[in-house]
Write a protein that binds this DNA or RNA. Structure first.
Lengths: 349, 349
DNA sequence: TTGTAAGCGTTATCAA
DNA sequence: TTGATAACGCTTACAA
């Protein structure tokens, strides 16, 4: 059997106009400017539209209005050996926010690194999307500059450093997060608090380390130790081992990611330290894994639904020509306290 | 500043034709039927296209060809308390496969359950997408029937039961997976092998239970116990507790999902049973969490990249009018052996 | 091999 | 308030 599927079936605007006994412009107005129609006419046209199941062609509409009403987003392959599977939740939040503003999300993934930037260009130049949401911005990222160059509207999850124009961004205040983690640990009686961080290349990594350092200063405490590692469990285990072998040993570790926190779990286990009792651990990102491990991991949760909304609000604002101030927004993560920082049976103060 | 962003800028086909000194049809042919052009002409036109950075308008093309070259996919909110965050990897596999076939993925998420089916209709009727990929099919699922009714091409990840037409689907053989898990456990010396399953509503759940049962029969072993629970860690812990309190106690548990397997971890811990030593546990899905827990969890991995390719191959085949046989495909999961079924220091036979 | 003419379905402009 | 006319940018006949 060789059934052919013509892209769009259904009636078109002319058909609706014919059945309703009006001109096709009137049908268009019924959809796009209903206030221009006499109530009786509007109701009649609406009825015919419903009966025929008419829906305007997206292609024709996009051609005419020069707006695809689609936003491009690049999905990364999930990094292996990493716990922070946030992309899923982020994608859902973004899709939901986009639809609330009348946009759909167009997903793409670079075939190889060579055509990564090319694909952004391709999508904007063919008019497949009206703009982009960027995530995973890091200091050497070429994308902002290149997108600016091709006049492609975009908003980024994560601050763009060295931005000259009125960049649009939404970010989570990592320093505030790790600061809250330290305060929580201090309230639990901890005095030797170490930090297990990422290499200094990443800006979230730097921010999170800064928050820890500043909170300690505020609390008039000395750093309980500092180690850095790539964001994998194995590397985290090695770095955490160094921290746990310090004398005196820290009683608590704030990790820059959940993945590193789990590395700390492994290092603690090797030394027979019971987490939540002899050692408190706090992660960052509140990944799905966090509540599944033993003991459940205290972690900092990013407000993803709100992030999605604010990203889309900025982008659609720019797309519709009304740029709003402020163009950047810093949101607070929330500390989700679990047994890794408060042993079962004890209450946080 | 109120910069307006007209959707598509850049030159159009007429501009290219003018600069190249040819008709606009020749430019179109250079892109769509290069073999019709004299090599010299083709090269010249190509050069002008590159210089001007011309890319054909997707809207115009879609309008003319009646094909959006986009595939719709619904993203679910990630269920909390569940480990199996496969959607990410699946989405990436799908996006990659789609692009290889010249399509992009259009993401959407129902605002509420009421407009879930409406959105499928909306997307196909406006011509925003040419077809859909469905996942998470369950027995009572209305989508296949409704999509058939609106003549929307689709392919599903998971078999559609009660399908009358030549349905397109790709699925993973759950029974074969749990069967392989049982065989592996037997080769490790286990004789009392229990199953921790999902409620019988879900077809993957039934298949996975069947594979366990049949493998035991093949190995001439009695079931070591059977319990069912909703797919959360908490429910899994309760159900697994019942299994571990059996006399005689099973020495191995095959779980229908990684989430349930982690529930089994918790139940074992409560009883002081060391996993990998006194109790073997095997999960299903090879979620990111599997390799991060202690001990790392043996699990069955679905061949997601291949699944994505085969899904897209079927769908694009139908879209282009050449339906191929067979329309269904059953793929094998692969057992990833980790320490939860082979204690460190021991080798699988 | 190249050019000409028509039409895809919509919205914007303007006249009635 | 409603209706006629003209694009939007492209591809597919068909003619040269």
């Amino acid at each position: 059997m060789t059934t052919s599927y013509p892209g769009q079936s259904g009636p078109n605007i002319v058909e609706v106009a014919r059945v309703a006994g009006v001109s096709r412009q009137t049908v268009s107005n019924a959809l796009n400017a209903p206030e221009r129609l006499r109530p009786a006419t509007l109701e009649h046209v609406q009825k015919v539209i419903d009966e025929l199941g008419y829906r305007p062609s997206q292609a024709a509409r996009a051609l005419r209005t020069r707006a695809a009403r689609q936003i491009g987003y690049r999905v990364d392959p999930e990094r292996p050996h990493s716990a922070s599977a946030l992309q899923d939740q982020f994608l859902h939040a973004l899709a939901e926010a986009a639809q609330a503003d009348g946009y759909f999300l167009l997903l793409f993934t670079p075939r190889d690194t060579a055509d990564e930037l090319a694909t952004y260009g391709e999508l904007i130049r063919t008019g497949s999307v009206d703009g982009f949401v960027l995530s995973g911005i890091d200091p050497g990222d070429e994308r902002p500059e290149r997108l600016l160059g091709m006049k492609a509207p975009f908003v980024s999850f994560g601050r763009v450093d060295g931005g000259d124009g009125p960049q649009l961004w939404v970010d989570v205040d990592g320093a505030s997060g790790t600061g809250a983690a330290v305060d929580h640990l201090v309230s639990q009686g901890h005095r030797r608090i170490a930090f297990l961080g990422m290499p200094d290349r990443s800006s979230p990594g730097r921010e999170r380390a800064r928050g820890w350092r500043e909170a300690l200063a505020r609390q008039r405490l000395q750093p309980g130790g500092l180690a850095c590692a790539e964001d994998t469990v194995a590397a985290g285990t090695r770095a955490a081992s160094a921290l746990l072998d310090l004398v005196p040993r820290p009683t608590a570790v704030v990790a820059a990611t959940d993945t590193l926190a789990l590395g700390c779990y492994a290092a603690a286990r090797e030394r027979g330290l019971r987490i939540g009792h002899e050692l408190a651990v706090i992660g960052f990102d509140d990944s799905p894994t966090a509540e599944l491990v033993d003991p459940p991991l205290t972690s900092l949760r990013q407000p993803l639904p709100l992030i999605g909304q604010e990203l889309m609000r900025r982008l659609t604002g720019r797309l519709s020509g009304r740029d709003q101030v402020p163009s950047g927004l810093l949101l607070e993560p929330r500390l989700i306290v679990r047994a890794s920082s408060v042993p079962f049976g004890r209450q946080p103060v």
